[in-house]
Simulated assay, not measured.
Amino acid sequence: MYREFSLFERNMEQVRELASIYQYLEDTIAAPISFDDILRSQVVYSVSAFDKLIHDLVRTGMVDIFMGRRTTTPKYLSEAISLKLYGEINSASVPPKEVIFEQAIFKKLQVVSYQDPSKVAEGLSFIWEERQKWQKIAASMGTTDSLVKTKLKLIVSRRNSIAHEADIDPSSGTKYGISKLDSEDITDFLYQCGAAIFQLVV
């Protein structure tokens, strides 16, 4: 899982570069145009990096369970697989059975978004048998689970507004405002949340 978290860190570093690009353009280009969409893209990519981290941790953790390197969980044990996949795994030699299993998990999870707090907790249940997941995560972040879940929901809502509605306020027909402080706060929060989850499940 360390490799997956390292990738998350690199993704977040690239996301933070967008704020630097925004600031450079604001400081050097005198033009009657807005560069705010760069900050909006920072929000979208921050959520995407967080989503990918959860996917990667869940997939890798499930493979570790499959290989006997990690303790099973009730959700993992209750997950159904097709007889076709069972046969492929049983008869596998090249590629190895764990590769076939991982490919099947990847395909199954790629249609799921791990952004909403309930979905994140649901995904983590495959690899982490902890009933109070968000309480543990929030405690690691030095806050409360209600605050963390509320903020994550608001971030995801803003991401969806940007990605699906062009961030337009329907009452005014203009875009919602966004500042560099807003986008950086979102990136920092998602990094802290992702880091806390990694430390708890690794």
Rank of each mutant, 00 (worst) to 15 (best):
S6N: 09
S6D: 08
L7W: 08
L7A: 14
E9G: 03
E9K: 14
M12N: 02
E13A: 14
Q14G: 10
E17Q: 14
L18Q: 04
S20D: 14
T28I: 03
T28N: 06
A30T: 14
A30P: 02
L39Y: 02
Q42A: 08
V43A: 05
V44K: 09
Y45L: 15
S46H: 10
S48I: 01
S48E: 02
A49W: 02
A49N: 01
F50H: 08
F50P: 03
L53E: 02
H55K: 10
H55T: 01
H55G: 09
D56G: 05
L57H: 06
V58Y: 04
V58Q: 02
G61Q: 04
M67W: 04
G68Y: 14
R70V: 08
R70D: 02
T71P: 01
P74L: 04
K75Y: 06
K75M: 13
K75L: 08
Y76K: 04
L77H: 09
I81L: 13
S82P: 00
L83H: 07
L83K: 11
K84S: 14
G87A: 03
I89M: 07
S91N: 15
A92E: 15
A92L: 13
A92D: 15
S93Y: 15
P95F: 00
P96W: 13
E98G: 04
E98L: 05
E102P: 00
Q103I: 13
Q103P: 00
Q103C: 05
K108Q: 11
L109K: 02
Q110I: 00
V112G: 15
S118K: 09
V120S: 05
A121N: 11
E122C: 11
G123N: 08
G123W: 06
G123Y: 03
L124D: 00
L124P: 07
E129H: 15
E130T: 12
R131Y: 09
K133D: 01
Q135L: 05
K136S: 09
K136C: 00
A139G: 09
G142E: 03
T143K: 00
S146G: 02
K149N: 07
L152S: 10
L152C: 11
L152I: 08
K153T: 10
K153S: 13
K153F: 03
L154A: 14
I155H: 07
V156E: 07
V156C: 08
V156T: 15
S157L: 06
R158P: 06
R158D: 12
I162L: 13
I162W: 10
H164G: 06
E165M: 15
P170D: 11
P170M: 12
S171V: 09
S172P: 07
K175P: 09
G177D: 12
I178Q: 12
K180M: 10
L181Q: 12
E184A: 08
E184I: 04
E184Q: 12
T187Y: 03
F189W: 13
F189G: 01
L190Q: 05
Q192G: 13
G194I: 10
G194E: 07
A195V: 13
Q199I: 08
Q199M: 05
L200A: 01
V201S: 02
